[in-house]
């Protein structure tokens, strides 16, 4: 589903190289976890996948279902089935949450040549998905993410994911800022979406999240490269030993 080939990227403004040859393949239905110390390039990778223009790809390619997405705009990538759950979801004053959800959903449907969703169908869909994530109706009446707690924002991200039904979900430190109850709700939401056709790229600092969202593969990103890959036991090893030993081995 996703093939990242020898990806090099730098900050567009100042030229600092952040990714230095990332190779990673994710199959359909696979849950891949990326772990790594601060500054290893995890968030950058997620932004580049989503199409943020603050970064410049200097070498390599990203293939999604066999085709390069590097020239695609963020909205085109989203319509093609890519979703980024933000580490820090943005508060957008003045944009009503429901208006946003409906606009996004229908823009994607339109881009795929599907009919727009009528309001009653849309409302039903939102209500069902919100119920699963314990998001109350009052929250949806507020402007997008405005005044939401950290946990509410993360749940709202998962709600968007559930509604937009992407094929590839990139989750950037979804566990940061969550207490254990919120973490369980979010993990349940993600697990409910797992399917044979849907892949996940879960970025995290801690093994804790991976107890709830059990990955098929675990990759360690360090200084802009994947230095080790393994199964879920690699995450446990990291939890016990820290990153230093693996870094030393790779060096």
């Amino acid at each position: 589903m996703l093939e990242i080939k020898n990806l090099h990227a730098r900050v567009a403004d100042e030229g600092t190289e952040i990714l230095r040859g990332v190779d990673l393949t994710i199959e359909a239905g696979e849950v891949a976890a990326i772990m790594g110390p601060n500054g290893s390039g995890k968030s950058t990778l997620s932004y580049i996948l989503a199409g943020r223009d603050d970064y410049e790809v200097t070498e390599g390619d990203i293939l999604y279902n066999g085709e390069s997405i590097l020239e695609m705009e963020p909205d085109e990538r989203a319509a093609a089935g890519l979703f980024l759950a933000f580490q820090y979801p943005l508060e957008i004053p003045g944009v009503a949450t429901m208006t946003f959800l409906k606009t996004a959903l229908n823009a994607q449907r339109k881009a795929r040549g599907e009919a727009e969703l009528m309001t009653p169908d849309f409302m039903r869909k939102v209500k069902a998905a919100a119920g699963e994530l314990k998001i109350d109706a009052q929250m949806l009446k507020r402007p997008l993410n405005v005044g939401f707690s950290g946990g509410e924002k993360k749940r709202a991200e998962i709600l968007q994911m559930a509604l937009l039904e992407p094929k590839l979900c990139v989750m950037d430190e979804t566990d940061s800022g969550l207490d254990i109850d919120a973490l369980k709700i979010v993990a349940d939401g993600v697990n409910a979406l797992r399917s044979e056709e849907r892949s996940f790229l879960v970025i995290t600092h801690y093994q804790r999240l991976l107890e709830y969202i059990v990955p098929d593969t675990v990759h360690v990103l360090y200084k802009g490269r994947i230095i080790k890959s393994g199964d879920k036991n690699l995450a446990l090893q990291l939890e016990n030993e820290g990153y230093s030993q693996i870094i030393d081995e790779a060096a």
Binding site: D75, F86, A107
Partner: peptide, 18 residues
Amino acid sequence: HLFYLMSRGIPAPQAKAL
């Protein structure tokens, strides 16, 4: 803000208008 809206599939002109 623009990137956030676009990452949800809203094309740039529509996202800016919003």
